[in-house]
Structures are given as structure tokens and as C-alpha cells.
Nucleic acid binder design. Sequence first.
DNA 1: GCTACTGTGATATTTCAGTAGTACAGTTGA
DNA 2: TCAACTGTACTACTGAAATATCACAGTAGC
Lengths: 132, 132
Amino acid sequence: MLFRPNPSSGVPIYLQLMEQVKHAIETGALRSGEQLPGIRPLAEELVINVNTVAKAYRELEHEGVIELRHGSGAFVSENARAEKLADALRGTRSMVAAAIERLRARGLTIDEIRRLFEAELARLSRRGQRRG
Amino acid sequence: MLFRPNPSSGVPIYLQLMEQVKHAIETGALRSGEQLPGIRPLAEELVINVNTVAKAYRELEHEGVIELRHGSGAFVSENARAEKLADALRGTRSMVAAAIERLRARGLTIDEIRRLFEAELARLSRRGQRRG
DNA sequence: GCTACTGTGATATTTCAGTAGTACAGTTGA
DNA sequence: TCAACTGTACTACTGAAATATCACAGTAGC
């Protein structure tokens, strides 16, 4: 199962779905032009409502991540960025894992690590480097 | 001003406040036993409701981060963890910043970096290493 | 053309988190 | 005792999210 939002996490399901789709594309699990699961089948599989999936897809289209073709389905956008990203990400996962491992070795909990990263990312955002 | 949640960020104010209090404790900006701002003064300063601050404080107490004394005020819990953390965190900020910098050098946006970390942290969480 | 699949759209309902206003209650010190 | 501070509790409003249900519309294959 490629996607699995957690309904009791507090984070809206449609947002989780969006993040997971994006992440799948970034890591290459979903490739440019590839078709995504249909709204109805996916909703049934995840045991959520059709509208929730539809909302996620609509937002993703609005962000240019995917392309919706009425009657045909949803497809990953054909942009060069995805390909570049897959390349750029090759090896970064181990890099990230290593960084986290070092922090855990210092005795930090996952939550503490998360706050550290968020604080640092927030600092960057504030410095004019707007979100992509 | 020590705390400043952003009401229009989408993230609940009381959660932001909680994170900021924790972060302040972890970095040593707030020390063990130290008194936090009163609910009303703080609410007024941040231009939010008293209950919002109260909720944040209540949750923090429930997590064992602070201690509430009815009639007296809110105080940072006297646990050894805070002291250890301040030590453990000395130097980690530059470590985190360096990791992020490497990713940015590869052309990733802040959002993409965030998803990478979240995915990796989620992986850890799922493996039985529950949140602290 | 028909069928079975796709996404679109509208509407109503429900639930729940977040926030707010206000009254209550404990503590402290003059 | 009183005043001024602390946190606590209750009630209510609001809006976002999710659900359910339905009808509509484009596409592809037979």
C-alpha cells in the first residue's frame, strides 16, 4: 500500500495524502506521467471518503504536482523537476538518517529532534528563502 | 518577547506555544524551577485568549514539562532531563544547520527538506521508538 | 450506442478542535 | 480581611474537515 494517512493524527487526511504523494514523486516511487490510483478505488482502499481524496488531488493539481484529466484519471505532472529531484535525493536519505542518528546518539528523543529541525527550518524561511 | 505564535500559520496557537516553551527549556532559555509568565499577562501580550494559554500550559503539565500551582503560577519542572538536554544541544544546532545546508546545496527547497525529515522521523516512530 | 470506468459538482449533515467570554477558586502579602 | 494576583471550569460560538449521497460529465473500449 503506497499511501496511508493516519485519521487520528490530528493532521487532516487530505493534507497527509498530499504530502505522501509529493514524497512518492520526489523519491521516484511515482514517476512523471505515471497514473495515480483512481479517486474511488483509493478512497475505498484507505477507508475514507471519495471527497477527501478528490480534495487532495484537486489541491495537488492546483500546486502543479499532478494533472487531472476528466474521464481518464490523475497523472504525475511531466516536469523536469521531478527527475532532477530523484537524482538529488539519491543518497540524501542515508544522509538524513545519519544526521538523525547522531542526534539520537546524544540522547535526544524524536520529538526533540523534530523541534530542532523545525526551529532551524523556520529560521531559514524567515530569512526570505520562501517555500517551494 | 520570548514567545510569539503565529495565529495565521494554520498550526493551532496553543500547540505553537507548547513547542516554543519546550524549545526554550531545551535550549536553556528557561531553567528548571523558573516561573513562566502568568496566563493573563501572556495572553494579553500575545493578543490571544486566556484559555488558549491555559490550554497550552495544561497540556505541558500533562506532559510533565511544567508544573501548575493553583494560585501561584506555572513553573518549569525540576527534572534532570532539562539540564542534560541543554548540554546535549550545545553544538547540535550547527550540526543540524550543516545537514540542512548540504541538502539545500543539492537544490532542494525547504518544503522538500521538511518532507524528507518528516518521512525519516515517521519511519523511526513506526519502529516502536515512541515519542518522548 | 452502450457500458464501465474516470473526475466534477452541489448540498446537507456531523463532528470536533480552537477560541472566546465569564464566573469560580486557590495563594500571597499587606 | 481584603485586594490583587494566580490557575480552573463551564458554556457557547465558529469554522474546518470529513462524511454521505446524489447527479452530472468526459473518456475509452467493446
